[in-house]
């Protein structure tokens, strides 16, 4: 048990570190050009916000349609904290997340009593309200003209170095979000949250304080979305309420549904895929949205559970399988179906 724990921690750290070094090197040497480097960084931000949405929608089972609003709160508050109060970036991003969490808590109190589509519509409404407030608080947010001059992640003048630093920051926060969400989900409070999705009545009669855990999950989700928003503000250096419209909220829902509601790895894959496909489809100009819509419809028809359903790709399991074949007593010598083995193993 203890040995497993150690092995898991080491494996995950080594994997995420080596993936980082690989990608950073590729950007640094120009093999991933500046454009793709930027895109990858943007994808990271999308992954953060989508993971936060997956927490409330995929794991808690409460459909929320206002995450662009949370992102807006995070983005504006981070930008304002940096620009007006001269706070360094990391504390500013976390402060933005906290402010968004408070917003989430306030919005959650009245709305989380509602179920299903009612909740979706009210969160949508709140998302729009936030956007309209941002337009009208001109003194603070610059109103419809937008907020200019958010300082970038780094300002060295060297484009390639800047791109690497930008990527590094976002990668760091992606890992942070990933650790928070996946550790939460695999703990007892996380199981309580999932049980609400499975059956609210049963969950209640198993002694789980359902309203509290809905609220907790919603606030946590707002916090992470706010962090995503803060990074977004620094990434673009310019904010405009139009960037956080209803369609953006829908984009995050699309990512979560495509990846599989309740799958962390699914959200990561879908978030990256979504960002790239959106860019590739730009050559079709206005038809982009039509093609995109058709693609979505066909996915829902033929793959209703999304890419991953509620399954996960376990890095630890993969590493065990390919690098530590001999350590496991099971003799996986020939090409026998491996899936059955890993199931009977029962390791996490």
């Amino acid at each position: 048990m203890k040995k497993n724990r150690f092995f898991n921690a080491i494996t995950l750290t080594v994997t995420s570190a080596s993936l980082y070094i690989l990608l950073a090197l590729l950007i640094f040497t120009g093999i991933i050009d500046e454009y793709n480097g930027q895109l990858l960084t943007l994808a990271g931000i999308y992954v953060i916000v989508s993971l936060s949405l997956n927490l409330i929608t995929g794991f808690t089972g409460q459909l929320a349609l206002g995450h662009a609003g949370f992102m807006a709160v995070g983005a504006y508050s981070t930008a304002i904290i940096i620009m007006r109060l001269n706070v360094p970036m990391i504390p500013a991003v976390f402060a933005g997340g906290l402010i968004t969490a408070i917003f989430g808590l306030l919005i959650g109190i009245p709305t989380l009593r509602l179920r299903g589509d009612y909740l979706a519509i009210t969160t949508l409404g709140f998302g729009e309200i936030i956007r309209v407030i941002m337009v009208n608080l001109e003194g603070l947010t610059g109103g419809a003209a937008g907020l200019k001059g958010v300082p970038p992640f780094s300002d060295s003048g060297d484009f390639i170095l800047d791109a690497v630093i930008k990527f590094s920051w976002v990668y760091g926060f992606v890992i942070f979000t990933l650790v928070v969400v996946s550790n939460l989900i695999k703990s007892s409070p996380g199981r309580a949250i999932i049980s609400i999705r499975e059956d609210e009545i049963a969950s209640n009669s198993m002694g789980i304080n359902v309203p509290y855990y809905k609220m907790f999950s919603f606030t946590m989700s707002a916090f992470l979305a706010g962090i995503g928003g803060g990074l977004y503000a620094i990434y673009f250096g310019y904010l405009n309420p139009q960037m956080f419209g209803f369609l953006n909220s829908v984009n995050f829902v699309v990512i979560v549904v495509l990846g599989g509601m309740g799958s962390i790895t699914g959200t990561i894959l879908a978030g990256i895929g979504f960002t790239y496909i959106q860019e590739w489809l730009r050559i079709f100009k206005d038809f982009r949205l039509v093609i995109f819509g058709l693609a979505l419809i066909s996915v829902m028809l033929f793959w209703p559970k999304g890419l991953m359903g509620t399954n996960e790709i376990s890095v630890v399991k993969l590493v065990r399988k390919y690098f530590f074949k001999n350590k496991n007593s099971d003799n996986s010598s020939s090409g026998s179906p491996a899936s059955g083995e890993s199931q009977s193993e029962g390791v996490r």
Partner: peptide, 21 residues
Amino acid sequence: DNVRIAFHFGVKYNALQGILR
């Protein structure tokens, strides 16, 4: 997990301790 969920309210650690492992 079905059974472990029912143990939840007696569990002594909170969400933060769960996240921090």
